[in-house]
């Protein structure tokens, strides 16, 4: 259903749009434009003047094995964060959906991690797994396992994935629970009477009816893993060891602010901008098609 409001003339609609346009211009268009502009130059080491190189920065990046490795790392990282956080959230939501007593408490407790800022969550996990003083490390040591994410690349990846997924479970849980509760009870009951046991019901009724929620979360979580996990990675591994946890966003930071290669950093930002754009387009295209089953 489409609702249209008709305005006479242009003044009022422009005034109404102005605040949003102004904010977008100052905080998005201006910096994005700057990034695009800077990506075409290489500044000298002292930042006094810069030299125009055209697409040189991009050309260099796409042939840089480290940058390509970072792409792969990002894919693995965001894939794992999305699957782990959504999987756990869905499992918990199914349990909560069946729960009658204490459902409120259970829900409230599950929402708390969402309120923890990523950097704080990172510090929390870093201390738990600290190679010298970490509680978990100590217990693992008792079990005979020598945990060291500072040296071991797999362990480093596992740790940042766990820390990034943790807060995300809450968010996904809320959406999954709402999605499950929106499925009419009688439809599930009808399926049970038709002979479907729990798993068959889940596969043939619940999962398809949940698919708009799942798809929405999929996109949102990939975007999260791409862009909002900076704090976690910065506090726990700083992209190491051997760049094993350097995702694209972290590389923008480490090349630009640590390595002072501003031209390359700007070019990387532009590439990320394109990625976000693509994700958004996919989301809108699919949501339009999938929501109406």
């Amino acid at each position: 259903m489409e609702k249209r409001v008709t305005f006479k003339g242009w003044t009022l609609p422009l005034c109404l749009l102005l605040p949003q346009v102004a904010i977008t211009a100052v905080f998005f268009f201006y910096p994005a434009g700057q990034a695009v502009y800077q990506s075409l130059f290489i500044p000298d080491p002292f930042g006094l003047k810069s030299q125009f190189v055209g697409l040189g920065n991009f050309n260099y990046l796409l042939n840089d094995p480290y940058y390509r490795a970072s792409f792969a790392t990002t894919a693995v990282f965001s894939g794992l964060v999305t699957v782990v956080s959504m999987g756990i959230a869905l499992y918990l939501a199914i349990l909560a959906d069946r729960l009658i007593k204490g459902a409120g408490t259970y829900r409230t407790l599950l929402i708390w991690p969402y309120a923890v800022a990523p950097a704080v969550a990172g510090v929390l996990w870093m201390f738990m797994f600290n190679t010298r003083v970490g509680v978990v490390t100590w217990y693992l040591g008792l079990l005979g396992y020598d945990w060291n994410h500072v040296l071991n690349e797999g362990e480093a990846m596992g740790l940042v994935v766990a820390a990034s997924s943790w807060g995300r479970v809450s968010y996904n849980f809320l959406f999954f629970l709402a999605g499950l509760q929106a499925i009419p009870k009688s439809v599930i009951e009808a399926a049970a009477i038709d002979g479907a046991r729990f798993w068959t019901r889940f596969r043939t009724i619940v999962w398809p009816l949940l698919s708009p929620t799942t798809f929405f979360l999929l996109v949102v979580n990939v975007v999260y893993a791409f862009f909002e996990t900076f704090g976690v990675i910065h506090t726990i591994t700083s992209g190491g060891p051997q760049q094993a946890t350097t995702i694209l966003v972290y590389k923008v930071f480490s090349d630009g602010f640590v390595g002072q290669d501003l031209g390359s950093s700007a070019a990387q930002s532009v590439i990320l901008l394109v990625v976000v754009g693509l994700l958004t387009v996919i989301q809108f295209k699919f949501i339009e098609r999938r929501v109406h089953y």
Binding site: S186, E189, A190, A191, A192, I193, A196, L209
Partner: peptide, 20 residues
């Protein structure tokens, strides 16, 4: 017995059809 083991069929007030 579970509903599926009772050999019954039920018609609900809101029909409870599978929307997808």
């Amino acid at each position: 017995l579970e509903p599926m083991d009772r050999d019954i069929a039920m018609v609900f007030q809101n029909y409870a059809l599978y929307p997808h």
